[in-house]
Simulated scan of single mutants.
Amino acid sequence: MQRKGALFAVCFFAGLLGALANSLAAWLAGSWGLTTTAGVAMTPELTKTWLYPRLVWGGVWGLAYFFVVASPRHRRRWVRKGLWISLLPSAVQLYYVFPYHTPFGTLGLGLGALTPLFVLMFNGIWGFFTGLFTRMMWGRG
């Protein structure tokens, strides 16, 4: 049971690091004008108040990733599983957060027609790095 607890912590921390990569990608896309060029009004500012909640939620979603890799016989294809799990936070963002907690409507289309694509892409970055960092920190054991 002690090994599962260690993997639990590793998944949380990897999710946090994945959220850092996700946040930096979102900030860079906004700073470089990629989102504006695509007609999406997503230009976040890199501040502590914007970044900290994203890191915590990245760690929480990393715990969802834990349930996918908790069994020793399922500890393969870490990055691919991270990419699959990244669809969960994307669905929550597109179908719960945008319509019920923001004025942007379902799929965030109030921000622009390509908003769902950017949400999937940024969360895909989270999933990729969460899987990569979990694999790197967990090793072969």
Rank of each mutant, 00 (worst) to 15 (best):
G82R: 08
G105Q: 13
K81L: 05
Y52N: 10
F8E: 12
L46P: 10
G108H: 02
L28S: 05
A41H: 15
G15Y: 02
G108M: 01
P116I: 09
G15F: 00
I125N: 02
S86C: 01
A41L: 10
F122R: 07
L109D: 13
L7P: 00
G5F: 05
V97A: 09
Q93C: 15
W78H: 04
F66K: 01
V68P: 00
V69I: 14
A25W: 02
L7W: 05
R135F: 03
F8P: 02
L16I: 04
L20T: 05
K4I: 09
G33R: 06
F98H: 08
T36S: 12
F8T: 09
G5N: 14
N123Q: 14
A29S: 05
F12G: 00
R140W: 07
F128R: 05
L28D: 00
L87T: 15
R135A: 03
G82H: 11
P53Q: 07
G39S: 11
S31G: 09
P44T: 12
M1W: 04
S31C: 03
G18M: 08
F122V: 01
Q93T: 15
V119W: 06
A6M: 14
R75P: 05
F8S: 09
T37L: 09
R54K: 08
L132R: 10
R80T: 11
A64H: 02
V97T: 13
G124Q: 12
Y52A: 11
G108S: 06
L109T: 09
G62E: 01
P116F: 04
M1K: 14
R135W: 10
K48W: 11
V56Q: 00
G131D: 13
L16R: 06
V119S: 08
F128I: 06
L63W: 03
H101L: 15
A19M: 08
A41P: 13
L88N: 05
T35V: 00
A25R: 05
G139A: 02
G127W: 06
L51V: 12
L94W: 04
P116C: 06
L111V: 08
L17Q: 10
W78V: 06
V56A: 10
G112T: 01
T134D: 09
V60P: 02
C11G: 07
